[in-house]
Design a protein around this nucleic acid. Structure first.
Lengths: 232, 232
DNA sequence: ATATTAGTGATACTTAAGTAGTTTTACTTC
DNA sequence: GAAGTAAAACTACTTAAGTATCACTAATAT
């Protein structure tokens, strides 16, 4: 699963493009990149926070689901879907607190990893890093906040529509990133269950809002979708 | 509502004790404190983010509710209950993004305030501040994350019990901080409605878990309360 | 070609939570 | 002490969402 990445071109490129290390001088970049190794998770690899506690990761490619489970009911809740250039876990990086999460690769995932202690040393050596972490953490906070507000104030059709809208590419106007997820994974993203999500998807289909396929969906009527999201 | 705070002893004391400025040298502390004014909000003062957009606040005393509303249903959702030494809004401080929130003082609230641009200048002048902000933001993230997980995976009795448990003082074993809130405000905290919260409070009372009074509650049976929170 | 599996579509049923409305209680103030 | 008010307590009703189950279909493996 692991692979030495010293001097690896892919690793260096990822580091250079990371919002964390962007604009660092060449020398530092090389030094930093040399501390990472490349880790490859085949599709559907599952890992608990305990196994990853002492490592910091930057995703190179593939999607990684960050989730919680309720053993009692077996229900799952996806907190984040991480992608290229995302990193984790920031919480355990900045403080030694327990952050009980699970991770699962939705497809083959490639990432860089390094001991968290090394990143903590960098935080001291390169104070700029603290400044770079803040906006990232802020965005995560806003994301979860939005989820909490939606889950509290909106019903499932509106939450479903919001999720889809959020993942429509501004230029192409096409649904991206979540268009190939199963009903089950969509349900985990809005905090519901497969059957309920499917029920509302059928409604959306009959209303001409979505075109549904097997692990594939497409937005047909954006105007109506927006109406759904805003409860009109 | 406002009051000059230059050289104010209360302001300086608050700044000294803030996790943001702790251990700064005396000279810097005086300089920083001199830039704040004291703001007093009478009980139940309500303010939108638009009115506060360009200011940064540190609470001296009193509780401040941070919430969202759904105009359609009139329902309210309390994201945070800020208290002494809390500050806001960190999101608009670190980035110029829209963070549409409302604020309301639950009782008379005293706070320090200063233009957000000044704090941004301090972030450059004192790089240490970035480092101090990180754990605070991390805690907020964990808070909202916990809310999201609870709201998604637990039913109202468990969420209610969790909320109470979270506010029990470790030493005194007494319920604090939220013990004097109305059913309505408790409902806003767990993302439900007054009637539903009251229904479950009655259950808790009959089961001998809580003692209920007018704007006052007390935990009688902690063991049972923990069972409720963990769905046993 | 057949078997297996994962994902989807659809039905019937259960239930927790939301909503509306009324009554009761406790506190305030005049 | 009476009147007024706000919170809490209670009742009846509605509904969205969850659950269980089965049928169907596409993809994959054997």
């Amino acid at each position: 699963m692991n692979q030495k990445g010293k001097g690896n071109a892919l690793g260096l490129k990822t580091i250079e493009n990371s919002i964390l290390f962007k604009d660092f001088d060449k020398e530092s970049l090389l030094l930093i990149a040399s501390q990472f190794i490349i880790e490859k998770w085949p599709a559907h690899t599952c890992s608990s926070c305990y196994q990853l506690r002492h490592k910091f990761h930057i995703i190179i490619s593939g999607r990684l689901k960050v989730f919680k489970t309720d053993k009692r009911t077996g229900r799952e809740f996806t907190l984040f879907l991480l992608r290229k250039n995302d990193f984790f876990d920031v919480i355990t990086l900045i403080e030694d607190c327990s952050h009980k999460l699970y991770y699962e690769s939705l497809e083959d995932v490639k990432m860089l990893s390094t001991p968290i202690l090394i990143v903590r040393r960098w935080l001291i050596k390169y104070p700029m890093l603290n400044q770079r972490l803040l906006p990232y953490l802020g965005k995560q906070l806003l994301n979860i906040e939005e989820y909490a507000v939606n889950h509290t104030l909106l019903e499932i059709p509106a939450r479903l529509a919001s999720l889809i809208l959020k993942n429509i590419n501004q230029e192409s106007k096409k649904l991206e990133f979540i268009n190939d997820l199963s009903n089950e994974e969509i349900a985990n993203l809005i905090g519901s269950t497969r059957a309920v999500v499917n029920r509302h998807f059928q409604e959306f289909k009959h209303e001409g809002i979505l075109k549904l396929g097997r692990k594939n969906m497409e937005v047909i009527n954006l105007t109506l979708l927006i109406k759904k999201a805003t409860n009109q």
